[in-house]
């Protein structure tokens, strides 16, 4: 893999909750404009790793990191990092859809607004754009001012994706985005991810291996905080190098 194509580069990265080592010395490159899936059994540190990429783990008081996470070659754990700018460029979509208790429109323009965009026409354009890209525009264009909580689960999740897209992020992190959704909504989201990949780098944590196999370009398998194997999805699923990986993806544990 050519280093220059990597938007993220993790070097000996470890993450602690208090004394508990949740991610052990991971080395990993994430290629731009591809989908990278992180799989592994529950508690293997995959969500922690994902949340480290835009420093959402900062919200936990006793956390501590070692090693580096390079974003465009810059360590995001440096003291002078602008976390806010980082999160704007590296957005995140959560497991459970979490729209704010306000209208669809207000949800989407939350980000642009905190960045000081006030002009109605400009906001309208951003909202429409983001909703179109999230494949939600057709469904909600007539109820932009209804509560975001009134949408169905799948729509809510796409609303959350639109809310992130309104920020024009370079990377979107998905933390098991479909685990709370029905199969049809899940399919919609998966199609959406394929579409988004053309412009955005995607990292997705999933415990659904078929999903990882279906949509991702690269797959990382984690176990007990360690990165066991990383490579092209086709290789990993067809011909895993490591015994553990093989046992996991063939369903022998996890």
């Amino acid at each position: 893999m050519v280093a220059g194509k990597n938007i993220f580069e993790l070097k000996d990265f470890s993450f602690y909750y208090g004394d508990f080592l949740a991610v052990k010395s991971v080395n990993l490159g994430i290629e731009a404009r591809k989908i990278t899936a992180i799989i592994g059994p529950s508690g293997c540190g995959k969500s922690t790793l994902l949340r480290s990429l835009n420093r959402m783990n900062d919200l936990i008081l006793t956390s501590r990191v070692e090693g580096e996470v390079l974003f465009h070659g810059v360590d995001i754990y440096r003291k002078d990092t602008d976390v806010i700018e980082l999160r704007k460029r590296v957005g995140m979509v959560f497991q459970k859809p979490n729209p704010f208790p306000s209208s669809v429109y207000e949800n989407v323009c939350y980000g642009p607004r905190i960045r000081g965009i006030k002009k109605k026409s400009q906001l309208d354009e951003i909202v429409e754009n983001a909703l179109v890209r999230a494949d939600l525009w057709k469904e909600v264009k007539d109820k932009l001012h209804e509560s975001g909580m009134s949408l169905s689960g799948g729509q809510m999740q796409r609303l959350c994706i639109a809310r992130s897209l309104a920020q024009e992020p370079e990377v979107l992190l998905f933390d098991e985005p479909t685990s709370a959704l029905d199969p049809i909504s899940t399919a919609n989201i998966e199609n959406l991810l394929q579409e988004l990949r053309k412009t955005i780098t995607i990292v997705i944590v999933t415990h659904n291996m078929q999903q990882a196999a279906r949509i991702s370009d690269y797959t990382a398998f984690m176990y007990l905080g360690e990165l066991i194997e990383f490579g092209e999805t086709d290789t990993i699923f067809v011909n895993p190098y490591n015994k553990l990986t093989e046992e996991y993806i063939t369903g022998r544990f996890g």
Binding site: N54, M56, L86, K88, F100, Y110
Partner: peptide
Amino acid sequence: PRTYREASYSLGAGKWDTIWRV
């Protein structure tokens, strides 16, 4: 709910923005 705060932070909102707007 914590999820509101998380959503706001993940969108690059600062602490004050999150307090004041969410």
